[in-house]
Design a binder for these strands. Structure first.
Lengths: 161, 161
DNA sequence: CATGTATAGTTTAATACTGAACTTTGAGGT
DNA sequence: ACCTCAAAGTTCAGTATTAAACTATACATG
């Protein structure tokens, strides 16, 4: 019987370490690492979403704001790839932000280039550092050095995916 | 100006290493690690979702199947906590699975206990190992030892969140 | 330069998820 | 026993997201 079966439970119940040894030797770190990663992302996202709500943004909208603010003139295509959402969703998101007066489209051939409005820029300057701080606080549950290790490992993983 | 601004872009453009040094010394591993983690999770989730589609399951439904299969008699409450979804959503998910004949509710006081049907058990036996293998393959972009490191780091992080 | 093909974006229908109101059941204290 | 409060689930309305069909523009090749 595969290890998987009770992993979520094991983690929930905190007995993962014990069970890892039961089967004889440590195995399937891959899967356990994945489950942990998933949980961590859930938690951080939840905290971040709650924090962003104070600014009237959800996480996806924040991402658009941050990306466009960092790279004025981005195309929607690029945005979609960077944020891992479909182009339909990007269309919708940009609609929202435009209606709210935070970003503006400038059509250029068959692509749209995106820019922040003045108000968008103001919100950007306010929200982005705050969000960065939040993430930093959360991640600082790990000591500085381990954060760096983590970063390095994840970078390797990301690149070969 | 905070580092955050162009991190998503930096990662996208692969110049993160350079920029990390620009500001003088390595900083904000926390945030970079977070962004990487987010991206990795996106990618794995996407691959997994696609794989699961062959079985007519989305990721949430798979999670329900896996959890109930691993712990027959679970309560919906527990399920919700373990999967980080609201109880409303759990209700809905269990409805779906029940309608499809994969799980069954057994009311017990004010809680529901959940069990797999025979068919649910069959699907469980088929899908769970397959999913585990997929995750294992994806994560094995990292060598065994680094997976273990990653697992350990994430465990530490998760616990203090 | 004409035509076929690929690309960027929009639209729409279907699904997923959340938050909040509501219902029912259980538990504790008097 | 009775009352109040908390807990587990359900329902529902609103929002988010996807997938797929569609439109319009650019590009490549004969």
């Amino acid at each position: 019987m595969a290890v998987w079966f009770n992993i979520k439970l094991l983690i929930t119940m905190g007995v993962e370490r014990k069970s890892m040894r039961r089967g004889g030797g440590l195995r399937r770190h891959s899967v356990l690492a994945w489950l942990r990663m998933w949980r961590v992302v859930q938690k951080v996202e939840r905290a971040a979403a709650e924090h962003l709500r104070a600014y009237g943004l959800n996480y996806a909208q924040f991402d658009v704001l941050a990306h466009v603010g960092a790279a004025e003139g981005s195309r929607q295509k690029e945005l979609g790839e960077s944020l891992h959402v479909t182009k339909g969703n990007i269309s919708h998101l940009v609609d929202q932000m435009e209606r709210r007066g935070l970003v503006s489209r400038r059509q250029e051939g068959r692509t749209n280039r995106l820019y922040l409005t003045e108000e968008g820029r103001r919100l950007f300057e306010e929200v982005v550092p705050a969000h960065e701080d939040l993430v930093h606080r959360l991640m600082s549950a790990l000591p500085e050095e381990e954060q760096a290790q983590l970063h390095e490992l994840l970078r390797g993983l990301d690149r070969s995916l």
